[in-house]
Amino acid sequence: MNRLGVGGWAILVVAALFFGTPLVLTAAFSFWEGGDRYGFEVYGLLWNSPKLFEAMALSVELSIATVAALIVLMVPAVICMNLFAPKLRPLFEFIATLPFVVPAIALVAGLSALITGPEWLIGTPFYLVIPYFFIALPYAYRSIDVGLRSIDLATLTEAGQSLGANLGQIILMVVLPSLRSALVGSALLTLAVVFGEFTFANVLLFHTYSVYINEIGQHEVTAAAALSAASFLLTWIAMLGVLIAGGGKTGPSGVR
């Protein structure tokens, strides 16, 4: 412990203050009722706000739908690419990198310029699942691809075939179980990121959790503080899950 030295401890204490202070004070601020009064007033207000619960429910539904879209649309495609069409890898890499290069606000500009109908598609909040799919794509693709490369896919497939399994059985019983930690990790990260997403929802005018926080923050700033502290806890829970699932590896994401 002595080799950490005064300098080492000084760095860590300053960091702990910088990162701890806003969390503690945000939680404390949510109890402020003006002047010297503190209490639970704002929590009562939030508890009786149906709009909050609607917004939360929508964000939860969108997160789950996005995870489902990744599992149905991306995971099988990446597995099949690895199995049958490794030549397409550069194309997949390009698609998975594009959402990094095209900032969310630029993608939403492009989407609203190009996709102007039909109403059943763009009129429902579930339209957001499409851009959210691409927000999650870079790190979900990365972790699935790393997971697939760490197993000997070709040998496993051949072994399965020689035992008489068909493709569906091989994917379900051999490939997916060995991808479990990659799948759970990227699902939880996606849940956390989509739950807090703001850019698309705000521009496309859908009332998600983040949009609600911003709206209520304009006149009830202590309510926004309470909800912000709650989001920190939710992010923490999701990341704990990722850490447990992935054995300590998490990547950066794209809510910003």
Binding site: P22, L25, T26, F29, I213, G217, T222, A225, F232
Partner: peptide, 12 residues
């Protein structure tokens, strides 16, 4: 990050 982070700093 995002909106909750902004309000955490506004509160602080």
């Amino acid at each position: 990050a995002g909106v909750p982070l902004a309000f955490a700093f506004i509160s602080t």
